[in-house]
């Protein structure tokens, strides 16, 4: 379990990182926290010809709130998100951080790295899709922002070009009633199924809702459960019905962590629990 050979390049700013990516070609990869890439390299499942280490690029480690929403720098660690003071509408982010791996993983792994890795059970990928974040990329052709809803293309595949790097994730709007919950048999493991939800409740009635599931599709799966939610009373019965509807509308895969049928049942439970948590948050 030793990685294959690669050349190592340290970028000192974003421009240099992009230049290096351009120069080194499609087989080069960005190295940020390395908490997903390094294990894959140790298994030789990933064999980049070159690594562009951006861990020392200054100015990419921040949580900033302004008129455009909450901006999270790509190199912000999970731990920084977990312990950050964020405005009220974004509390789901630090709350969800406790689901990200274990404590040392959270200390080293980065927000941008998780988004770039594109694991369909990643908490940040789910929340980015849920909250309709924008993924801000820098490349040789300049800067662009891709909606998270269009960013994830399947297992570990994203809209980022090989010569682009993620610099920021922008959460445009507050989501005061949002929650993420998930299930794995052991604490800290990748979720078997994860559910991220947000809600708007007016006068005790659910007026809008959004639901994203992880672990049921090759990318975060946006599930339309409006039929069970919108216009219904904000109560346990509604959340359970939303869970059942979500379970019916997915066709998850089977693997050693659970069959497709089991994942459907987990989805029903987790959706219902996430809405319960969101409603009381």
């Amino acid at each position: 379990m030793k990685p294959a050979a690669f050349t190592y390049h340290r970028a000192h700013d974003v421009r240099e990182a992009v230049e290096l990516l351009t120069e080194l070609g499609d087989e080069a990869k960005i190295l940020a926290g390395g908490q997903s890439l390094a294990p894959m390299m140790n298994f030789r499942l990933a064999r980049p010809s070159a690594l562009v280490d951006i861990t020392r690029v200054p100015g990419l480690d921040y949580l900033r709130h302004d008129a455009d929403g909450l901006r999270i720098g790509a190199l912000t660690t999970h731990r920084a998100v977990e312990t950050a003071g964020v405005p009220d509408g974004f509390r789901v982010l630090p709350r969800a951080a406790r689901w990200v791996g274990h404590y040392p993983i959270r200390c080293r792994g980065t927000f941008g790295g998780s988004i770039a890795h594109g694991d369909p059970t990643s908490e940040w990928c789910l929340l980015a899709v849920l909250l309709e974040a924008g993924i801000v990329l820098r490349g040789p052709r300049g800067r662009r922002e891709v909606p998270a809803t269009e960013f994830f293309h399947g297992f570990f595949a994203t809209a980022a070009e090989p010569d682009e790097m993620i610099v920021e994730i922008r959460f445009p709007g507050a989501a005061p009633r949002a929650a993420l919950t998930e299930f794995a048999q052991r604490q800290g493991d990748f979720a078997v199924v994860a559910a991220a939800v947000s809600l708007t409740i007016e006068d005790g009635v659910c007026s809008a809702a959004r639901l994203v599931l992880g672990g049921v599709d090759p990318q975060p799966a946006v599930v339309d459960a409006d039929q069970a939610l919108v216009g219904r009373s904000a109560n346990e019965t509604t959340w359970r019905a939303a869970g059942e509807l979500a379970a019916e509308s997915i066709d998850p895969p089977s693997d050693g962590h659970g069959s497709g049928a089991y994942r459907k049942r987990l989805a029903a439970t987790l959706v219902s629990r996430a809405f319960t948590e969101a409603a009381t948050s």
Partner: peptide
């Protein structure tokens, strides 16, 4: 199909 410690679930302190 159990070639990693992500698939072979040795319990942690939490379990």
């Amino acid at each position: 199909n159990s070639a990693t410690l992500m698939d072979y679930l040795a319990p942690t302190a939490s379990e």
